[in-house]
């Protein structure tokens, strides 16, 4: 048995763009481009990047909610890209997802009890009525919701409580791996901290493995063991989270960290302000995709895409002129 629960190898997702009278393919967006990484059991890998960098597509491709174009996803030693629908359904019991918007991801016509029971129904768990009731109450207890929540509807809850329901739903089938796709981005700061703490407690108690996707670097750095940074479909840097802040090698990572306004007056730092916008992924720049916004770009950067370089066992990056 390997120590890695999930291994992603050269994953690509290409969305064709159809156009013209005959609907011919006129271009393509490489939303995820040759991404490889591994996640250990019980670890949290954070995934950050700006909108449109492909982080959500990557998260969903791993569960095959979006069918990857090429590459391998090896979950617990098995390549799930080759699985048929039945095998896939079975493996999804072990890998779950929590979405960003707790308002849109709960069916408004179902009670919380029904919402939590549905995944168990599908996977044939706790079929005995008394067992199921016990399990439902246990789930509510785990996410710190009151017992009477079972008979209530999603609209009766606040955003933070709804996100707890979403977490309970993901936990219902006792998964090992959860993709958390921006689970706290829609919440107010004080509630965000409650949910982040809850996710960390659950990880400790249940031995969960997370892929934690967010654009908020502070939260990602806080919750993750390792952090991966994406830019225009490529993974540009991966490192231990404490290595990344202060020790980033890729100029983009450095700029991303420096762009965060700090609320601590003691930690005001000089700011790197990137010029321009994120280029369109339909028509990415040649060479290193970051070169038009990079202050360290040279001729090389325009010509060739940098290969993966390691500065230590845990720290990899793709840059011709690392910091």
């Amino acid at each position: 048995m390997s120590e890695y629960l999930l291994e992603v190898k050269d994953l690509c997702k290409r969305f064709p763009i159809k156009g013209g009278l005959l609907g011919r393919e006129v271009g393509a967006v490489n939303a995820v481009n040759n991404v490889s990484f591994k996640i250990k059991k019980g670890e949290t890998l954070g995934l950050v990047g700006e909108s449109g960098c492909g982080k959500t597509t990557l998260g969903r491709s791993i569960l095959r909610l979006i069918e990857p174009s090429s590459g391998q996803i090896i979950f617990d030693g098995k390549d799930i890209t080759q699985f048929n629908a039945d095998e896939m359904r079975a493996i999804r019991r072990r890998m779950q997802i929590i979405f960003q918007d707790p308002y849109a991801s709960l069916n408004p016509r179902m009670t919380v009890g029904d919402i939590l029971a549905e995944p168990m129904e599908i996977h044939g768990l706790h079929t005995n009525k008394a067992d199921r009731q016990k399990r439902l109450l246990q789930l509510l207890d785990q996410v710190q919701l009151p017992k009477d929540a079972l008979n209530k509807y999603p609209h009766e809850f606040s955003g933070g409580q709804r996100q707890r329901v979403c977490i309970a739903r993901a936990l219902a089938v006792e998964p090992e791996f959860i993709v958390c796709d921006e689970p706290v981005s829609a919440l107010d700061v004080s509630v965000q901290a409650q949910v982040v703490n809850l996710l960390m407690d659950l990880q400790k108690d249940l031995g969960l493995t997370y892929l934690f996707i967010a654009h908020d670097l502070k939260v990602v750095e806080y919750i993750s063991n390792r952090v991966a940074v994406m830019y225009l479909g490529n993974m540009v840097e991966v490192a231990e989270s404490h290595e990344l802040y202060g020790g980033s090698k890729h100029p983009y990572t450095k700029a991303l960290f420096s762009a965060i306004p700090s609320h601590d007056p003691k930690h005001q730092q000089s700011r790197i302000i990137l010029e321009g916008d994120i280029p369109s992924p339909m028509n990415p720049p040649t060479g290193c995709h970051f070169h038009p916004r990079c202050w360290k770009a040279t001729e090389d950067c325009k010509k060739s895409y940098p290969i993966v370089t390691s500065s230590s066992e845990t720290h990899q990056f793709r840059c011709h002129n690392p910091l």
Partner: peptide, 18 residues
């Protein structure tokens, strides 16, 4: 309740205050 970048030492971080 905002995580800050203070803990760059790699020691296990404390829980967020809520």
């Amino acid at each position: 309740s905002i995580p800050s970048f203070d803990s760059t030492t790699g020691v296990k971080k404390e829980r967020l205050q809520t």
